[in-house]
Design a protein around this nucleic acid. Structure first.
Lengths: 339, 339
DNA sequence: ATATGTGCTGACCACGTGTGCAGCCACGGC
DNA sequence: GCCGTGGCTGCACACGTGGTCAGCACATAT
């Protein structure tokens, strides 16, 4: 049975002053006598007083609260980003509402409504897509929004993104420079922004090298291991197998890796593998995965500081692009002699 | 610039009624005329009205909000649990505050204070430990608390835990039944509840089999790959190396695996490896990891439903134990002949 | 002595919602 | 016609906090 928490009034009664004075004392207003203020603060301390955020936000019209929407917190990339968001939020006195939207449209709507009712001061969306339902809903609640690695946002929000094109071009160049010419791409779902961009970088690196793009070598998963595994099976079934595969993300690489091993082939001896994200675990795989590092935590930090600036009313540059970093490990090597 | 959201009063003005009637209509009270109520609801709908949770909770003394404390959301086990919590919360109209406590005591305090000010209806703690500072703080705020895989909680809270002893006993038995006799344990930090219990299960399985416990084969990491890697290095440096290793969790197994591979040895040919958790990725490792499955999502569900019952005022069984499930994959095999 | 500050205080209202209570109207029974 | 009753409605207050404003006591300047 939660007993009623102590309020500002009770402290006022104990101190023998009006509640206004207590309020002022606790907010360090100069409008109250120093000695009295000290005494009030001491009493509040002793009572274990904690101001009610609800009551405060009712009058200040600020909830000191932000909402974070993610497709799935179980995705390690997302978890890294959220961690970075939470760091800054906590430091700046904000609390964060976390909501998984999943792929259920009904749930997306519930989430947005919940955020509206909570009067969050801002929203960060980290999802592989922003559902069509979303956009108008988010637009209509007059709140700053920051998208992270998301659909092209300039329409209605600010954004933090990894430099997909440049990073995947560099990753592909790495494979080319090792001597590979039959290089495949295992993507996310067709049509997602970051997939399109990573494919573009892939394609441009091939162009540079004068390697024609074989459409059979571009296949699509869904950003998770299982679908990537099936996609890899398609590639292995080709008469003319690729000697290297660039994957949309590390989880996809993991699935591809599994399929390669099951087929009795070895990485990188038979097939080189490159991922994207540099998940925490990727350095511990055998062989350790060559990948593009996304500074997940820093990206989260960046999204949160950007949001805070927007909340503070500072209009600033729309889009922030973060460079990726190619991390070469042992899952890539020159192609076998005979291929 | 966030324009003032529409309130119940404005709707009252439009509908030409008092704000009380609007409130009643929206809450489907029978105390208001059906036709009028319909009209009011229609107007509210058109205005895109969303009630203010702050104002409501001020009078109802319920925030429809819970707080979740985790050491690190980037830990995949934690992420799975949080996902399960959020599912139920969302379904039942609760929003969840997520807070990383990390290992910083100052931050732990900030987190608890924030939850107090937000007047959360309940708290779930998923941390490998509950800091000493924590206990009195959490205790004093009169709110139901559920611990998940945590210190022995009977003192001041309810709990959901994996059956550590039984599960790790079974895992160890598996190794014994394969013929291993020199089996090592790589633990979490010494003194943590779940580590102690898993070690106990490990020890009892050896007892059963009449295998004396070699103290040199019990080493400690911190539940993360890097420390486990160092722990594994200690084991490999032994004159009489183990033929199998049971790890506190999958992340530790990952680190151990890395060290084994770097030493030029193979899993399971030279050393068998067992983990704990069954992280999403563990089935995709090469070889796929034998491990104890913790139903992370369901444990999150369970913690949340338990908390909801407590919030509803139902006093119920203190502790819930969830059985683990041994998942045998290819990281375990009989020991080499010559050992 | 009066006017003009200066430093502080408390009464009061507002924020948005929920609810007890009194009161209103219409209708039916006598 | 009177009274009771049922169905509905609005007033008023409460929740806890922040801010505005008038006012008070006292010091200083004139």
């Amino acid at each position: 049975m939660p007993s009623k928490p102590t309020s500002i009034k009770e402290i006022a009664k104990i101190a023998g002053v009006s509640h206004s004075s207590v309020s002022r004392a606790l907010r360090n207003s100069p409008l109250v006598n120093r000695d009295k203020a000290d005494r009030i603060r001491r009493i509040a301390e002793e009572c274990g007083y904690r101001p009610s955020a609800a009551a405060r936000s009712l009058v200040t019209r600020r909830s000191q609260t932000i909402g974070v929407v993610v497709t799935s917190i179980a995705d390690p990339f997302v978890a890294g980003v959220v961690s970075g968001i939470e760091d800054i939020a906590n430091e700046r006195g904000f609390s964060v509402f976390l909501a998984n939207s999943g792929v259920d449209p009904a749930r997306e709507i519930r989430v947005v409504h919940a955020f509206e009712e909570r009067r969050v001061d801002g929203i960060i969306v980290t999802a592989s897509r922003v559902g069509a339902l979303y956009v108008p809903l988010l637009e209509q609640m007059q709140v700053p929004i920051v998208l992270l690695n998301n659909q092209h946002p300039s329409q209605f929000a600010h954004s933090v993104m990894i430099a997909n094109v440049e990073a995947s071009r560099e990753a592909t160049r790495h494979l080319v420079s090792l001597g590979h010419r039959r290089i495949a791409y295992i993507g996310d779902r067709l049509g997602f922004q970051s997939d399109t961009e990573r494919l573009e970088g892939f394609r441009s690196a091939l162009d540079e090298a004068g390697i024609p793009l074989d459409p059979a070598l571009v296949v699509h998963g869904d950003g998770k291991p299982e679908a990537a595994r099936e996609a890899m099976a398609q590639l292995l079934a080709l008469q003319n197998q690729p000697t290297a595969v660039f994957c949309y993300n590390d989880l996809s690489a993991l699935g591809a890796f599994r399929q390669i091993a099951d087929a009795g082939l070895r990485v990188p001896h038979d097939i080189s593998l490159v991922g994207f994200d540099d998940l925490y675990i990727s350095q511990y795989l055998e062989p350790p995965l060559t990948t593009v590092r996304q500074p997940m935590r820093q990206m989260g930090n960046l999204a949160m500081t950007t949001l805070l600036r927007l909340i503070a009313g500072e209009g600033l540059c729309q889009d922030i692009k973060v460079p990726g970093e190619l991390i070469v490990r042992r899952s890539t090597a020159p192609p076998k002699e005979n291929s």
